[in-house]
Amino acid sequence: MELIVVTPPDYFEGEAALINRFFEEGLHLLHIRKPVDDPEKFRKLMQGIAEQHYPRIAIHQHHEFAEEFSLKRLHFTEQQRKARAAGDFAGLTADGFHLSSSVHDPHTIQELTEFDYVFFGPVFNSISKKGYESALGDEFTLAPHVLKVFAIGGVRANRLAQLKQMNFDGAAVLGSLWHQTVSPLTELKNIMKAINKIQ
């Protein structure tokens, strides 16, 4: 089972240094999600992250910075994906980009042939978005699939084994990392230990 960390929506002091520590601890992939349109804050954040980590960073917004920072991973929301022509994504993959997206209907997963992986959720009730609840039952199992599917929404360390049984390839964590009494780095280590136990 693979792990993706998604940043909180707001920028904060020391964020770049913390992201560097995440990668030093062995995090494979990080998604920078900053819905507020603030290009200079985004640039400053990227400048604070060590360049050797750039290949393992996907960006949700500010795709225009991909060339400046040699970023090759772009994420598209479901709304963004539906608003663009399929040929746009084929062009991006031809240019060497790795693409990901978000889906809320498992039946659409097989259609996204230009994408490397997708987020599907909320699998459990969201931690970071109050009232954003899962419509899936405890018996839900993801159908066999080629595209990698990462569970998102309410993912905690003690639910990773359940996600594996549900046929997910990995988990994307947000609220469980940033909305805990322990530090994000400590919680990341707890989650990574839990993943190693179920491999």
Rank of each mutant, 00 (worst) to 15 (best):
N158G: 03
L27F: 01
A172T: 04
P39I: 07
R84I: 03
Q199W: 11
E187P: 10
T7A: 04
F22P: 09
H145K: 12
D116T: 11
I109N: 01
E139L: 07
G153L: 05
D95G: 06
I152C: 00
F76G: 03
R56F: 13
Y54F: 15
I57E: 08
P184T: 03
V173H: 01
Y117M: 02
E51S: 03
A161V: 07
D38W: 10
R84G: 00
E111T: 14
L112Q: 08
G48W: 09
S70G: 03
T77H: 12
I152W: 00
Q47E: 15
S176I: 09
G96E: 00
M192H: 02
A85K: 15
F23K: 00
D88W: 12
A90E: 14
I57R: 03
K130L: 06
F22Y: 14
I198D: 09
E114N: 13
F22A: 00
V5G: 03
L188C: 03
R84H: 13
V123L: 01
L185C: 02
E187A: 07
S176T: 09
L112C: 08
E133G: 04
L27S: 00
A94T: 11
K72D: 06
R159L: 10
Q61R: 05
V173F: 07
K34N: 02
I57Q: 06
I19G: 00
S101K: 08
H62L: 08
F69G: 00
I109C: 00
L27Q: 00
D138F: 05
K193A: 15
Q52M: 09
E15V: 04
Q79A: 12
L112T: 12
Q165A: 11
F89N: 09
D38T: 12
A143T: 12
E25G: 09
R81S: 01
R73Q: 09
T108E: 12
I198F: 08
A194N: 06
A157F: 09
H62F: 14
L177P: 07
S102Y: 10
K189W: 05
I4F: 01
G91E: 10
L30M: 01
H53L: 01
I49G: 07
Q47P: 04
L112V: 12
F69I: 07
I49C: 10
I49Y: 14
Q61V: 06
S134A: 05
R43V: 14
K164P: 13
I32W: 08
K41Y: 07
I109W: 02
I49W: 13
I19M: 02
D138Q: 05
F124N: 01
Q110L: 10
N167W: 05
P9F: 02
A90W: 14
A171L: 08
L30Y: 01
V146D: 13
I49K: 09
M166H: 04
I19R: 00
L29N: 02
